[in-house]
Design a protein around this nucleic acid. Structure first.
Lengths: 174, 174
DNA sequence: TTGATAAGTTCCTAATGGAGACTTAATATA
DNA sequence: TATATTAAGTCTCCATTAGGAACTTATCAA
């Protein structure tokens, strides 16, 4: 059976997972961020089979996360660079790493720390509201239907949630 | 072939991906955050097969993300609640949603917005340094080996990166 | 001439993913 | 009383995918 595709769902998380919700995707991206940009380097470091690596790199290029560029002519050799869309995944990666550090470190502390150039400290990611700068947590936000949302979708969620109203309704939803 | 397991790697992202790096994991977690906590609700909303949903829920419970609790006796019925570890994924979810909104919205705008209770605005996640509050981006952090890291691992990355020094070395790494 | 390296391709098999039918236990309805 | 419905799963089957390993191509080095 083909894997279910989420690309068309009216949900940003679904569409994002369609691209990065895969065992290897973030591993590859993380390594590219660390400077491991070439096929052989990735293969050796990730212990991934050539076939799967080829497929994954192809997908990430097709989806616009990576850019495959030739870095020498003879013989032709390529490396993979993050596109702006890929670079913009860095905050997600940091948020994920913070979660992993907090809950899965086995008591040994973070395997890798990131020193923030601005302040010189080993930084941990904090996710805040872009407007007011306060923390964003599960308990201080309320979902509502956005401009790209669809009422049937919201209604389906509310039905699945047992009829409780989940969303604030925007005025235009007559 | 069994999927490669990342749980033992000395990398927080790998360990995190071992749990949430799967097509359905974040979809389920997202729905639980929205209040869809029961088997049938999830199945209907996600259009996931019963078998796969059973497996995924079992895994998320085993990994400590969800808690399965009985909410009525006769007949026995259960629902899934986020554990503290699961609730703590919310910032990651918000960071991922922001990325999806920015790059994958097809020009229609965010399908779901989150209103921040503190400031009343539709919030977007911003990932900042927990120390100084400035943005964290790919270009303003420098990785270094942390207390839970291992030299051979760091060396493997530097070799894969073509010999360039990637990590700042902590003093104790003689 | 042999070897090494980078970057893939191809082939094979085992395991996973998904559809859908079946199960169980209780309540609601005709 | 008989039938339907709902929640929450099992179970079976088959197509697809994952991963290992061997093979390919092109070039430079010894």
């Amino acid at each position: 059976m083909k894997r279910t595709q989420f690309a068309d769902q009216p949900c940003s998380v679904a569409r994002a997972m369609d691209i990065v919700g895969e065992l290897w995707a973030f591993m590859i991206i993380r390594n590219v961020f660390l400077g491991v940009r070439r096929f052989e380097g990735l293969r050796a470091n990730l212990a991934i089979s050539r076939k799967v690596l080829t497929e994954r790199l192809g997908l990430l290029v097709a989806r616009g996360i990576l850019d495959r560029r030739q870095y020498q002519d003879r013989p032709p050799r390529h490396e993979y660079r993050l596109t702006p869309m890929g670079v913009d995944l860095f905050p997600v990666l940091m948020a994920l790493a913070r979660w992993g550090d907090r809950w899965l470190d086995g008591g040994t502390g973070a395997p890798i720390e990131f020193v923030h150039r601005k302040c010189g400290q080993a930084t941990t990611a904090r996710v805040v509201c872009a407007h007011c700068g306060e923390d964003i947590g599960a308990h201080n936000v309320q979902p509502r239907l956005g401009p790209g949302g669809e009422m049937p979708y919201a209604e389906a969620i509310e039905q699945a949630a047992g009829g409780r109203q989940v969303f604030l309704r925007p005025a235009r939803a007559a």
